[in-house]
Design a protein around this nucleic acid. Sequence first.
DNA 1: CGGCAAATTGAGGTAGATCAATGTCGGTGG
DNA 2: CCACCGACATTGATCTACCTCAATTTGCCG
Lengths: 237, 237
Amino acid sequence: MIPIKTDSAWKGLAECQSCGIRDMVLFEDLRAEDFQQMHLPIEERVFQAGKAIYRMQAHAGSLYTIRSGTVKLVRISPDGRERIVRLLRAGAVAGIEALAADSYDSDAVTLTEVHVCRIPVDVVRSLSERSPRIHISLMRKWHQALREADDWLADINFGTAAQRVRQFVMRMRHAEDPSVTTVFSREDMGAMMGLKQETVSRELGSLVKAGVLKRLDTLGRTYRILDAQRLADMGEE
Amino acid sequence: MIPIKTDSAWKGLAECQSCGIRDMVLFEDLRAEDFQQMHLPIEERVFQAGKAIYRMQAHAGSLYTIRSGTVKLVRISPDGRERIVRLLRAGAVAGIEALAADSYDSDAVTLTEVHVCRIPVDVVRSLSERSPRIHISLMRKWHQALREADDWLADINFGTAAQRVRQFVMRMRHAEDPSVTTVFSREDMGAMMGLKQETVSRELGSLVKAGVLKRLDTLGRTYRILDAQRLADMGEE
DNA sequence: CGGCAAATTGAGGTAGATCAATGTCGGTGG
DNA sequence: CCACCGACATTGATCTACCTCAATTTGCCG
């Protein structure tokens, strides 16, 4: 008998000390003695694609370090339009605003299956008071988020549709193999770049036709970059 | 004899303890004893309109709390186009990324005469290690910056030109008198909203013609808001 | 096999860009 | 004091990139 699942599956208390991606996340520099001080539960959770980790304006009691997968931060405007303000990937922190405010500033919705560690905000606060290392890590995470937000505006929400789509494709290259890139539904891509889904589809199509990209799957989510040079250069100056 | 002025005028060592806007800035919760620990110089500086406080990629050795005036954060894209990613006003911190990185992420250029306090990054670091209050202040400043960046994307870079301009006009209302709003050159406004200056001019003009705004100066920088309701509502749902 | 969800493709309309002329103000020098 | 100039905003007339609406295609799954 399969247990009923809600939005997330609880995987038990996290084993921070043996965490495989510890160097990417908040506790990158934490020492053994720091873990002793921890009394509140850090939990590992899994979300299926399309689930909300938290909602805008909900009480912000925890932050979430992302172990794997991709999360979109979504704002709904007063008149109901959806705007994706940022993407978070492995190593980023979702809900970092919990450290400075009472409620979350946006929805956090998973685009893929996502593994997170849920850390109560009090744990981070007390650790960062005691450990300068955590303190530095936190600064880096804030900076990472801010930088990402500015990049989002300056890179993929600027210029013609063709320029935006190319920037986006480049930004979504795989870390392991930069000649492969994975994108999202045309609707989501539109909400990220301020374009309509048809326009996104057309621009991707024209990159394929131009021999810059090659489809690797049937759905149009994964592409091989055949001509990285042209992808980066086209439409400059 | 008047001393030669470079970009900024040095006004001497800052008197933090008697600072009039201390509750808005970084040291809002600092106590007398905290100031004793400070050995590096905090300087008060004044910049005329149109000067750079710092440049993108320059070595980031200080951050700047803004005492008065308005600063634009500007990114130049590889192909030379200018994009304004955010505005900073009194109480905000320019160059906060100095705490987490070696170089600044954007140009900071004054739009008005601007008064700042220049604080060496080491001062902030050592204070925040010792004082939990500073630590909390810093978190709030990071959050303020991140929130502002996301707002910028979701509010004034989203929707039709008319919606953007109205959002912008509302965002630029004076704190003391919300029925007055001050905007910038049409070119700068365009670079903030992803529009051309002619479009900005037309949209402002149509708001005046519609009786929503009234020009208060000859240059088109200051307006009285005659119908705040319509300014907020028009073009919703 | 049929039905659904997502992407693609096409035709036509429009918001905003582009190109260009005109207007207004403030400063400067004769 | 007035003429001239440069900076900026405004206004007008086209043009076009992207949106809109709609039909078609593709793969997936029951």
